[in-house]
């Protein structure tokens, strides 16, 4: 992992996004009065607990994991929907936590966008599609006269495979896949370089998912976009990502490029996840045993949080949390067993 200098200069081959020791916790305490009466301390959920990674220009970096692993929280921290309790997010050499003025923040915001999971909730039901897509253009003041905005909206609709006439309609007149296309058109409206995609296809049917994934790939080729791709579906991640980070209970357990990760998973959790992928062509692959469930993230297990489900567990795993370290195969993995070579 690149450790940047204190004041990184925008170098062309520096990573577009650098996330360093990112932490985010949410308060899950009972209301004030109950705490006082029941003498309970405040309780926190560590949704993201020290995550570091980089994303290079033009690549697709995927975060994968089960529910509650914090992958969506990372996405929301990066686009500024949540505030980090610790750590840094550096976009193209600018520390997002250190931006001074609103104008400066707006200049950075112009350069990234987000695509959400639920195409039925991500479009304002009372707005016409053209107004939805034009919103980023208006907010960033990219175009000022209405005719130019309308022309640009038509262009964006064509780009995502819809027709300019669809702009006059309301979101409820479209199917789930078409709505997700509208979301993509909106995300492209301010010419961003970086797209954060939070489970963009998990609410869609498979045949529609294929359409959206293909569209996202085409757009990446065409516009040179960089993606942070969040998903729980390993097959989709394998298909889309150049590099993959596997998350478990708020921490990254393994980072590697997509091909090596799927061909040669190192961390026991990654291996277990891979074992859950159904053998869809029925070629008679044998599965490793999958056991247990993700524990409650409010009270995670001590030491390595995966230890209650891990086949390689020993006493060190139960007390000491592992760090992401390079492995012999060029992955980064957080596992005492790999570090010690007990496999």
């Amino acid at each position: 992992m690149n450790m940047p200098a204190q004041t990184p200069a925008p170098v062309p081959d520096a990573p577009l996004l650098l996330v360093e020791d990112l932490k985010c916790r949410f308060e899950v305490s009972k209301p004030f009065l109950n705490r006082v009466i029941e003498r309970e301390p405040r309780r926190w959920l560590k949704a993201v607990d020290g995550v570091s990674f980089t994303i290079d220009r033009g690549e697709t970096f995927a975060l994968v994991g089960e529910s509650g692993c914090g992958k969506s929280t990372v996405a929301r921290l990066i686009v500024g929907l949540y505030e980090a309790s610790d750590g840094r997010i550096v976009f193209d050499g600018r520390d997002l936590g250190q931006l001074q003025s609103e104008a400066e923040r707006q200049r950075i915001r112009r350069r990234f966008q987000m695509i959400f999971q639920d195409p039925f909730a991500s479009l304002n039901p009372r707005w016409r599609v053209e107004r939805i897509i034009a919103e980023p253009i208006r907010v960033f003041g990219l175009l000022n006269d209405d005719a130019a905005i309308r022309a640009r909206v038509g262009e964006l609709l064509t780009q995502v495979g819809l027709s300019p006439a669809d702009g006059r309609k309301f979101p409820h007149e479209f199917s789930g896949g078409q709505r997700q296309r509208i979301c993509i058109a909106r995300a492209l409206a301010n010419n961003p370089e970086f797209l954060v995609c939070d489970e963009p296809t998990s609410a869609l049917d498979v045949s529609v998912q294929a359409q959206i994934l293909n569209l996202m790939q085409d757009l990446q080729d065409e516009l040179g976009l960089t993606y942070l791709f969040i998903s729980h579906d390993l097959a989709v991640v394998r298909h889309m990502a150049d590099r993959v980070g596997v998350m478990y209970l708020g921490r990254l357990v393994e980072v590697a490029d997509s091909r090596t990760l799927f061909e040669n998973p190192q961390h026991p959790y990654t291996r277990m996840l891979l074992a859950t992928i159904p053998d869809i062509k029925m070629e008679g692959k044998r599965h490793e045993i999958v056991r247990g469930e993700v524990p409650n993230p409010i009270t995670p297990p001590p030491g390595c949080t995966f230890h209650p489900r891990c086949p390689l567990v020993n006493d060190r795993c139960r007390s000491e949390a592992p760090h992401l370290l390079p492995t012999a195969r060029g992955h980064l993995a957080a596992c005492h067993a790999i570090e010690e070579g007990r496999q």
């Binding site: 929907l81 966008q113 987000m114 959400f116 909730a121 991500s122 907010v139 301010n190």
Partner: peptide
């Protein structure tokens, strides 16, 4: 908490406008 409001927040629409328009 719906995503269309979050989409507006991502592009930095000020809170009073989000309340009024969305």
């Amino acid at each position: 908490n719906k995503e269309y409001v979050q989409a507006a927040r991502v592009i930095g629409v000020p809170a009073p406008l989000i309340l009024l328009r969305h």
